[in-house]
Amino acid sequence: MLLNELTQALSRLNLAQVAPGDYAKTGCHLEVEAAPAQMPEVARLMLEKGCFLESLTAVDFPEHFTLVYHFNHFRELCRTVVHARVPKEAEAPTISHIYPAANWYEREVYDLFGLKFAGHPDLRRILLPFEADFHPLRKKFAPSETPADA
C-alpha cells in the first residue's frame, strides 16, 4: 500500500511529524510536519513514489507563515499534506527544480504573501501587475495600502 510505503519512507527523513490523518475530517491520509529546509528532500521522495503536487499555498499566521503542500497520486488515492513553518522575513527553499508545477505556485505565493523562495529561477509576480507594491493576502494588508485609482 502506498500509504504505508510513504509513511515508512518519510519517517526515515527525520521530519518533525509523520502521522496518519483523519481522512473523514480533513480530507488527507497522511499529515507531515517538516522544516522548510527539508522540503526539497521530501519533494524528491514524493516524486520518486510517483506522487504529483496537488497544491501549494501559504497561510499567514501572526508569528509565522505556514507553507502547505498537498501531494496526491494518480493511481491510488493517498493525499499527503506537508506543513512547513517559515518565520516571517525568512526564505524557503524552492522545489521547482523537482516539480516544475511548483514554479508557478511559488510565484503565486510570493505574489500574494511576499514570501521569497531561495533558488527559484524566475521569482516574479504572477497575478498582480508587476509594478504593484503590496502583498494582498498578508493579514496586516490594509486597504489604505491600495493604490487609490488605477
Partner: peptide, 14 residues
C-alpha cells in the same frame, strides 16, 4: 468592497 485591491470599479472610470 472596501478592502478590494484588484479591480477597476467601473468601465466608465477608464
Amino acid at each position: 468592497y472596501p478592502e478590494m485591491y484588484a479591480i477597476v470599479p467601473g468601465a466608465d472610470l477608464l
